[in-house]
Design a protein around this nucleic acid. Structure first.
Length: 269
DNA sequence: AGCTCATGGCGAG
DNA sequence: TCGCCCTGAGCTG
């Protein structure tokens, strides 16, 4: 259940484990059997992440394209793959390492042309050094959609998910319902720069931490937050509880089927 | 054991 | 907007 920072982290690990080595590819579950047969035994050239999409290059100019969706998971390890337990869509095995993929939304083989086209459809990714924030700016400032929706639109901000959306808007005092066209150039610049910093940090740590030093539990005399996602955050999944900055009760609403969290005082309409 | 929810996205209507 | 995809964790009982 990853946002972009997890996909980048996994791409690094997969690249480290399999690049420049021949890899056996199969599909114990069977749903990726035809795709696996097209690449098995070939050498992995590299592994790339673009937003939440992961691409594995093989030396026959084919790519495996994976999108984890809400349920997908990689499991990696050294040595021989373990006996199959449950539904394993894709399995990679080199002489020294293995990886299992379960429950992805997308697992397919693409030609290099198809891969390039897929990457073109993905918006600028704050984690990537080659990202062009002007593409995102143009979409935001002429949009009549709320910024809370635009941040989740993968053609605008690739890799941002529900936690980063909620947290970056809190950190900049922007109400998620404010329209993109009402975001100033200065606000866009600050949002983008902050997404870069937060998501790069998340890639390194493997968790999402967004609380500034002066609001950390040690500084505020409160107990550290314990949440499933592992990080320290201001508003995500904190509805009904007091804002760490002003004490107002954090609000929850549904926006296009996803939960949206914000502080009505720190992020006024 | 069974239920609900989750860091996502697509297609039908 | 809704339902579906598909898996696992964290509850409840």
């Amino acid at each position: 259940m990853p946002e972009g920072h997890v996909v980048h982290h996994q791409a690094r690990l997969l690249g480290r484990a399999f690049s420049r080595r021949p890899v056996e590819v199969d599909s114990p579950q069977g749903r990726f059997a035809e795709g696996a047969a097209r690449v098995t035994g070939h050498v992995v050239r590299r592994v790339e992440a673009h937003g939440k999409h992961l691409f594995i290059a093989f030396d026959n100019d084919l790519w495996i394209h994976v999108h984890l969706g809400l349920f997908g998971k990689w499991r990696m390890g050294r040595g021989e793959p373990p006996p199959v337990v449950g539904q394993v869509r894709l399995r990679l095995a080199s002489a020294t390492a293995h990886a299992e993929l379960r429950g992805p939304t997308v697992c397919e083989v693409l030609s290099s042309d198809e891969k390039r086209a897929a990457v073109r459809r993905i918006g600028p990714d704050p984690i990537r050094k080659d990202a062009d924030p002007e593409r995102a700016r143009e979409r935001v400032v002429r949009s009549s959609a709320p910024i809370g929706s635009l941040l989740m639109d993968q053609e605008v901000f690739a890799g941002v998910g529900n936690i980063y959306r909620a947290e970056v808007l809190f950190r900049h005092g922007i109400n998620p319902h404010r329209l993109g066209s009402a975001i100033s150039a200065e606000e866009f610049d600050a949002l983008w720069a902050d997404l870069v910093a937060l998501m790069v940090k998340g890639t390194k740590r493997g968790r999402i931490d967004t609380v500034r030093d002066e609001h950390l539990p040690e500084a505020m005399g409160r107990a550290p937050r314990e949440d499933r996602h592992g990080g320290e955050v201001y508003v995500y999944r904190r509805d009904g509880r007091a804002c760490y900055v002003c004490g107002t009760v954090i609000r929850l609403a549904d926006l296009q089927g996803r939960k949206l969290y914000w502080c009505p005082t720190c992020q006024p309409d």
